[in-house]
Structure formats: C-alpha cells, structure tokens
Design a protein around this nucleic acid. Structure first.
Lengths: 188, 188
DNA sequence: CCGGACATGTAACAAGTTACATGATTAG
DNA sequence: CTAATCATGTAACTTGTTACATGTCCGG
C-alpha cells in the first residue's frame, strides 16, 4: 500500500495532523497521489497502532486540539525498505481516453466541451506549478550547496510541469481531430 | 464506475468473452485502464444481470466453451449518458514520484536502478505504440474517407506516444539530477 | 507427461468513496 | 446569524487485489 508511504514521506518532510495531511493531499503530494481525509484518518490510526508513527496531542487556543503525527523509527525503516524494493505498475486510469474512444459510438462533437474543460484544468495546474517553481526553486540556489531534498522535490515538480504541457498539447490534438471529423463528416 | 464504461467501449468495438476482454486489458485498452480477469468476470456478470449486456454461449471445438458478450440497448444508452456528463479527476497514483521524494530521507543513489528499470519499461512501451501506429494508422488513410472510430483511436494512441516520450525525457532528467547529487555530495 | 494457452470462476481481504455527524472559532 | 476554516471521526458501500480452484487441449 503506497498511501502509507506517501504519508511517511509527507510527515518526514514535515510532521502534522490528519487535517494538515489532508490539505497537503489537495496540493503538493496530491499532484501525484490522491487521498481524502476519511482515508487519511483511518490509515493514520492504523499506522500509529502499528508503531510506524508517533502522536503528540497539541492543545491550541481558539482552535480544536490537534494530533500531531511524526514518523517513528519503525516508520522510517518501513519507508527505507519500500524504497529499496522495486515497484511496478502506476496503474493507469484515463477516463478521458475511454470517453474519446467511446465517442465513436455516439456523438463525437459532444466531446468538444468536455475536452476544453479538461484543457482549462490542466492549463491552470500548469500555471500553478510554474508559480510554485518560481517561488521555491529559484534564487539562492546557485550559491547555496545543493540540498538533496530540494533537488528531488524540484525534479518531481518538473515532471508535473512536463506532464501538464504534454497533456495540453495532446488535448489540442484531440480538439483538432474532432473538429476535422465534424468538418469532413457533418453529422445527420 | 468507469470499468463498466471501458468494457462497454471495448465490446462495442468488438464483442468477446471475459477472457478476451482480460487480454485486451493487457493491451490496447489496458494502456489507459487496467483490470484483472477476476474483476472483469465479476463486473460482466453484474452488467449482464442489469441488462446492459447480452450473452451468447459459444461452443467451441478443442477449447472450452465461451460466453460471448455484446452490448445491449440499455448498455449503449448507459454509455451515451456517461459520455454526455462531465467527468473529473483521473485520480493520479505515481508511486515513483513518491519514491523520489522519499529518497531524500534515505539513499538517493538507490533510485538509479529503479529509475533505469522504469525507463526501459516506458521505452519498450513507446516502441510498441509506434509499431502499432505504423501497422494500424498508415497507408490507405489518405484515399479512404476518415472513419471517426479510426481517427479517435489514433488520437488516443498519439496521446500514449506523447506520454511515453515525455516520461522517458523526465526519467532522464531524474537520473541526471540524482547523478549530480551524488557527484557534488558523495555519501558518507 | 509437462507447461502453456484457453476459459471461468470463488473467497477473503485491502483500499477507496460517499454520506453523515459533531463542535469550536472567526470574519463578515 | 451565517458561512468558512479548523479539526476529527463513524458507517455503509463499492472497487480493486491476491490467492486459490478447476478443467481442456496442444505442442514438445
């Protein structure tokens, strides 16, 4: 189960509560691993009882208390072990591709709005990534010694950027294809 | 649930048995939607009892009999409805990205083999896609009238090709980053 | 006779989703 | 007084994974 590993990485980067983790899964980590708060709370509880995590009750003023989780020795060992074993898959789930192939049996032009909407989402995401890159990975870098964590986070972000750019270009290709189809074969 | 929709699309493209579907999910459709035979049999049974699919027992010689499924009217309607409603997400699960960020807390150079292995997988997949493109989408195309199904399948394949190319380039970026890290900061 | 392709399944479990539930504080 | 943010959870359900189970035919 890789949600556990994603949580370990996130908590190593910075300890935090279930709520905070849930928010990180809507941002940074969430770009390559999704999870809802229900799932996170459930898994945190299990990981704690398995001794992978340590909890600390943090009383707060003007806010509900929170449970701050951090990675215990066992958790670190579990992560290390996972890092050393090969992983497969990255099991794909591209609903849009299924839709595109399905559209052949229905009205292909109905795709247009949907594809444009997705293009917008990816375009926004790209802008967001680029802003993050500018903010976090430029400037004092040249002078300061390269930090492994920083460099690795940056290369993951560059992956996200490349992915969004590729996707946008592909969606343009899809739109052009659908339009061409409509032009040469107007529907009944 | 989009596995149902992927099955509908696949069966519309060509009716077939659970076994055949399972094999298609290791190839063509499998490139953007994964499913094991156990899952497929379970869902097929449900879809049939829901009236989305029709079955035909096909006795065979020298082989076990098979149940050939095809899409019923209800199934076609269900697909059509799905095509017309917006979909979200494409919920991501990039184990490798989690690993890369996690490597900062362990030995980054342990990534090298893993990344090279993944690069090989994507490189093979790209070659496979390109061969398929050459086989299925070149030649009589210019003379024959454009077939919507063909064009849409082709654009999905082009998406796969773009994805693999992007991924390979990114993995090279990852390798370069890790090597650079090792060079400037040799590990203890 | 053994392994691989063909063909279909069951059972148990793990993971993910959706809906519901509670309660405090702060900004408008 | 109302909505938003912070904070944590339960329950029911659907999906997806892993392991097990069975049986034929064909080629080597």
């Amino acid at each position: 189960m890789a949600l556990e590993h994603a949580i370990l990485v996130s908590l190593l980067e910075k300890p935090g509560s279930g709520y905070e983790l849930a928010r990180r899964f809507e941002r940074s980590i969430g770009y390559f691993w999704t999870a809802t708060h229900q799932q996170i709370y459930r898994v945190l509880k299990r990981m704690e009882s398995d001794g992978l995590l340590a909890v600390r009750e943090v009383p707060q003023q003007g806010r509900p208390d929170k449970k701050e989780y951090s990675v215990a020795g066992l958790g670190r060992a579990a992560l290390s072990q996972w890092l050393h074993e090969p992983i497969e898959s990255e099991s794909v789930r591209h609903d849009l591709a299924v839709k595109i192939r399905g559209a052949a049996f229905d009205d292909p032009s109905a795709l247009i709005h949907e594809v444009e909407r997705h293009r917008q989402v990816h375009s926004d995401r790209l802008a967001h990534y680029l802003a993050g890159e500018l903010r976090d990975f430029t400037g004092p870098e040249a002078s300061a010694p390269p930090d492994a964590g920083q460099e690795l986070q940056h290369v993951v972000l560059r992956g996200g950027i490349a992915y969004e750019r590729m996707t946008i270009a592909w969606l343009d290709d899809v739109l052009a294809t659908v339009h061409q189809l409509g032009a040469s074969r107007p529907r009944t």
